[in-house]
């Protein structure tokens, strides 16, 4: 008997999560009110769709395929760096502005790729700041805070 692969576990995990999502949506739908056949309540449609998702998830859990896993790279470091960059971008764009937020995002994402040297990352971040400024502020004339509340 072949040993279950990572993909097999991922498939089961996603199916289980979707089963949970279906249950939450159905339960929520039931609470919002189902109404009658003539007057469908606010919860009726999500209730029905939630039930459908539950049934499908159970079928999927029972028939998860033992596929092959082809991936080789390590994803956690890269994902962590990009996630940190995006969270940092969200945290500072309102108060610090577009340029510092983009610089932070590009630097952290650059580190996340794991293949760029520090000086390349800094040059890339600076170029992307310039590109975003030219494109979004100058060309599209969007009202974005550029640097600490200064608008273009």
């Amino acid at each position: 008997m072949s040993r279950p692969t990572r993909r097999y576990h991922a498939e089961k995990a996603v199916a289980a999560l979707l089963l949970l999502a279906g249950t939450i949506f159905s339960f929520g739908g039931y609470r919002y009110g189902l109404g009658s056949m003539r007057h469908w309540g606010a919860g009726a449609f999500p209730f029905v769709c939630g039930l459908a998702l539950i049934v499908l998830s159970v079928v999927c859990l029972c028939s998860a395929a033992k596929g092959r896993e082809a991936g080789t790279g390590s994803v956690w470091r890269g994902m962590g760096a990009i996630a940190a960059g995006m969270a940092g971008f969200a945290a500072i764009i309102g108060s610090w502005g577009l340029l510092p937020a983009t610089f932070l995002l590009a630097s952290l994402s650059g580190i996340g790729t794991g293949k760029l040297k520090v000086r390349h990352i800094l040059a890339l971040a600076a170029s992307l700041c310039l590109l975003m400024y030219l494109l979004f502020v100058i060309l599209l004339r969007l009202p974005l805070p550029i640097f600490r509340g200064t608008y273009g």
Partner: peptide, 9 residues
């Protein structure tokens, strides 16, 4: 990296 920046902005 550019795609991530474009998406966020």
């Amino acid at each position: 990296v550019a795609i991530v920046c474009f998406i966020c902005v």
